[in-house]
Amino acid sequence: MTAVVNIFLKDGVLDPQGKAAHHALDSLGFAGVDDVRIGKQIIIKLDTDDKVKAEAEAKEMCETLLANTVIEDYTIEIN
């Protein structure tokens, strides 16, 4: 199975890269942009066919290493 992990700064934690991209979009004339957040995506190939197990493993990986939960939130999608 494949775990697709998306990691973003928490709401309320200023995302300076998102802000810079937002300014750039504004100055390029893209109207109506309310907010831009930049995160990262990590794709993990797992040697299991058990969706529940895959999700539990990916969650442990996020909590241990992949995300810093002081400043970041993450989502996991299992395919």
Binding site: L9, V13, L14, P16, Q17, A20, N68, V70, I71
Partner: peptide, 17 residues
């Protein structure tokens, strides 16, 4: 040391990048 949990908080990218 913050990543290791020995110190509180975290260090992010500088605001001006």
């Amino acid at each position: 040391l913050t990543e290791a949990g020995l110190l509180p908080g975290a260090l992010k990218r500088n605001n001006n990048l």
